[in-house]
């Protein structure tokens, strides 16, 4: 169980950095419910995500994983329940304000600014943390040196530097998926949510993404939805299984792999990944 040791090391490391001992739970939901009309896509989900842990959410299509992310990031309003970030209620905070509080996400369906360059996409994503500065029509785009630097770093990290000047819409599918994740990184969040970051990626990209997610946990709380069980079982500290809008079970990768109900939900043989 080296994962657990790593997780312990990580949390020990981070509590030394933040001056007053931070709340051990980064993000917490209580009985969270989201309705689309009369249909409940998420039903009474209570989650508790430890600071700087890697928490994955799995479950069949239509389980409500993306909707849960929409609720956590403020894209949709929950119809019941609450969300707490660092022990502060953010249930009624707008999505753009949540970015300032330290939550950023990537989307399952790639959502970029297709006619703007890669570098400009990332600069905007970084500028989003201090958006009121951008309201000044006399400020040049180079004004925010930090945003420019962040865009550069993220491009390096995701091997997008060579295509910095290309319009996002012209990139290959794999590059667009990497930029999608980069958009979340550029916000320098404390809690990062990634919705199926590896979907549609080639083998090499998947391996790189796995390492990226693992490395993020050093200074981020990572929540991600993933269908690739190899990744889920390999790098998660905690796995939550959802089905039909509800939380089915939650536990360490080992516990999840051996859970009879999960095996039934996944028709037995879908969970194949090794545990490192």
């Amino acid at each position: 169980m080296s994962i657990h040791n790593e997780a312990l090391k990580r949390s020990g490391h981070s509590s030394g950095k933040h001056a007053p001992a931070p709340h051990p739970v980064a993000l917490e939901t209580s009985e969270l419910t989201v309705a689309y009309g009369s249909f409940l896509a998420v039903r009474g989900v209570s989650l508790s995500v430890r600071r700087n842990s890697i928490h994955s959410i799995i479950g069949p299509n239509g389980a409500g994983k993306t909707t849960l992310f929409h609720a956590l990031t403020g894209r949709v309003r929950p119809s019941a329940g609450s969300i707490r970030l660092d022990d502060k209620d953010i249930s009624h905070t707008r999505d753009d304000d949540r970015v300032r509080l330290g939550i950023a996400r990537s989307f399952q369906v790639t959502s970029l600014f297709p006619n703007l360059s890669v570098q400009e996409n990332l600069r905007l994503a970084s500028q989003g943390r201090t958006p009121w500065q951008a309201l000044a029509p006399w400020r040049s785009i180079n004004h925010n040196k930090e945003a420019m630097a962040t865009a550069g770093e993220v491009m390096e990290r995701l091997s997008l530097t060579q295509v910095a000047g290309r319009a996002a819409g012209e990139l290959s599918h794999g590059q667009q998926r990497r930029l999608e994740v980069g958009m979340a990184l550029a916000a320098r969040p404390r809690v990062i949510l990634m919705d199926e970051p590896t979907s549609g990626m080639g083998v090499d990209d998947i391996e790189a993404m796995k390492e990226l997610i693992r490395s993020l946990a050093a200074d981020h709380t990572v929540i991600f939805v993933e269908h690739n069980m190899g990744i889920v079982m390999n790098i998660s500290d905690t796995v939550t299984v959802m089905r039909a809008g509800q939380k089915l079970v939650e536990g360490t990768p080992a516990e999840i792999r051996d859970d009879p109900e999960v095996r039934r939900a996944y028709l037995g043989n879908m969970i194949t990944g090794d545990i490192a």
Binding site: R75, D95, D96, V99, Q127, G128, A136
Partner: peptide, 22 residues
């Protein structure tokens, strides 16, 4: 300006502009 570019971002993809913090 950054303002003008943000307007372009809103035109291109309003949902993402909002998700990114604007």
């Amino acid at each position: 300006s950054t303002f003008g570019r943000t307007l372009s971002a809103i035109r291109e993809n309003e949902a993402r502009a909002s998700a990114v913090g604007f």
